[in-house]
């Protein structure tokens, strides 16, 4: 565990909490892509199947359980409890275009052709693009609430911090995982445009609005 990984994990946790609290407090999931949240639930489920086979640490187990439970809770709030507020007219990204290529790629490029390993690889590939429906929704409506922007910033920062973690581990532990690194770079790059808008607008107290 190094400082980059810890802050990355905490940033990830913060993102999930921000989203849950926002939906709960406002009793609304307007502006949130249910499809991205479904993809994240799929990501955590397929990645953390090793909970039953491999013990790493209490911290690791605890965080995995939190991520899985929180993602299912979010999906429940969007599709069941606050369904009436869900923006399904704008949430029209075709998720099969993300799920199928991720799955095929995980069959082709993986560390080991074993069920758990392929599902882990699939989750890494899918996570890298899972935010696209959310970014698509923001681009369709042309704006995002500040709290949604904070959520996206925390979520995007997490993989960016993991990039620093991977650089650190490469030098400190001679450890690297090319699949995670390449997918992590892709994931972080997808947020760049958003990061720019976040710094130039949201941090200056303005609403995140895209140019018409």
């Amino acid at each position: 565990m190094n400082i980059f990984r810890l802050t990355g994990d905490l940033s990830h946790l913060l993102a999930i909490i921000i989203l849950l609290v926002k939906i709960w407090k406002t009793r609304s999931c307007a502006g949130i892509s249910g499809k991205s949240q479904l993809l994240f639930a799929l990501v955590y489920t397929t990645r953390y199947l090793d909970l039953v086979s491999t013990y790493i640490s209490a911290y690791n187990t605890f965080m995995k359980l939190i991520f899985i439970c929180a993602s299912y809770a979010t999906v429940y709030l969007i599709y069941m409890k606050f369904k009436a507020t869900y923006d399904h007219n704008h949430d029209t990204f075709r998720v099969e275009f993300l799920i199928l290529p991720s799955f095929v790629l995980s069959l082709l490029i993986n560390h080991d052709f074993a069920v758990l390993e392929i599902l882990w690889t699939f989750s890494i590939y899918l996570e890298s693009v899972a935010i696209l429906p959310q970014l698509f929704l923001v681009s369709k409506t042309g704006e995002a609430e500040s709290i949604t922007s904070h959520y996206l910033f925390a979520l995007g920062s997490y993989r960016g911090l993991y990039l620093l973690n991977w650089i650190y581990r490469y030098y400190a532990e001679s450890h690297y995982d090319l699949i995670a690194i390449v997918a992590g770079v892709v994931q972080t790059v997808l947020y760049c445009d958003f990061f720019y808008l976040y710094v130039t607008k949201v941090l200056k107290g303005k609403k995140l609005q895209l140019p018409a």
Partner: peptide, 10 residues
């Protein structure tokens, strides 16, 4: 490629 036996990251 130097993949670990287990994936210790989240």
């Amino acid at each position: 490629d130097k993949a670990e036996e287990t994936h210790d990251e989240l």
